[in-house]
């Protein structure tokens, strides 16, 4: 897979720092799971965390903690792997971090329609922003909008184009409030994206403003 659009440095730093919302972190982890280039940058940022940890003044831990851990170690099984042992069909279209929340192929999800040609599937948590899969039919545009904060979009299927460029599977659009954009789906199949924002979107068209209360964007 050739990836042309990557994560912003500021986003990667916040991911390593543990400072991203759940939804934003999910998009970042999903991209990292398939992008060695960004993974390498993330490792550098993790090492910044390591250096900062090492620089901290020690806090006193309870006297008995080590002893109580040591007595537990003999019964402690080593953890063999991080990967879920779920042997259900692994759908290569779904990046591994997303598999914790999606248990079936994308086509089998219960998509909720916003307007003809546009549907969404919400991640199972609430936050200040949005965290959902968005499915848009060929030739359809997402509603024009700007952001108060950051918006991350990762393409899982199909492609779209906007003022920045063309985005295909694996690509990430990492945008902030500097940009007003209106992505247009230009693939023959539906475009499915994983998106997250850290603040509510602001739609710039009257129609967008009308549907905003309904869609909960």
């Amino acid at each position: 897979m050739s990836i042309n659009h990557h994560l912003d440095d500021a986003t990667l730093v916040s991911y390593s720092a543990g400072a991203l919302s759940q939804g934003m972190a999910l998009v970042v982890a999903s991209h990292l799971s398939i992008c060695p280039q960004c993974r390498k940058r993330a490792e550098v940022n993790d090492s910044v965390g390591g250096a900062l940890l090492e620089s901290l003044e020690a806090e006193t831990v309870a006297d008995g903690m080590l002893a109580s851990i040591l007595t537990r170690l003999d019964d402690m099984p080593v953890q063999l792997t991080e990967v879920s042992t779920d042997t259900a069909v692994i759908d290569p279209e779904i990046p591994s971090p997303l598999r914790d929340y999606i248990d079936r192929p994308l086509d089998d999800l219960e998509w909720k329609r916003i307007v003809p040609g546009v549907a969404y599937y919400d991640m199972p948590w609430e936050g200040h922003g949005v965290s959902r899969l968005l499915r848009i039919a060929p030739g359809k545009a997402m509603l024009a909008h700007t952001h108060n904060g950051n918006e991350l979009t990762m393409v899982l299927r199909g492609s779209f184009s906007d003022e920045v460029g063309r985005f295909r599977r694996g690509d990430v659009a990492d945008l902030d409030d500097q940009i007003e954009h209106q992505p247009l789906v230009d693939s023959k199949e539906d475009c499915i994206c994983l998106i997250a924002t850290d603040a509510p979107l602001r739609f710039t068209t009257l129609f967008g403003k009308l549907v905003q209360p309904i869609t909960g964007f």
């Binding site: 543990g18 759940q22 972190a25 982890a29 990292l32 591994s96 971090p97």
Partner: peptide, 8 residues
């Protein structure tokens, strides 16, 4: 916290 797995 969403992570790419330690295996990868």
């Amino acid at each position: 916290y969403p992570q790419y797995s330690l295996d990868e």
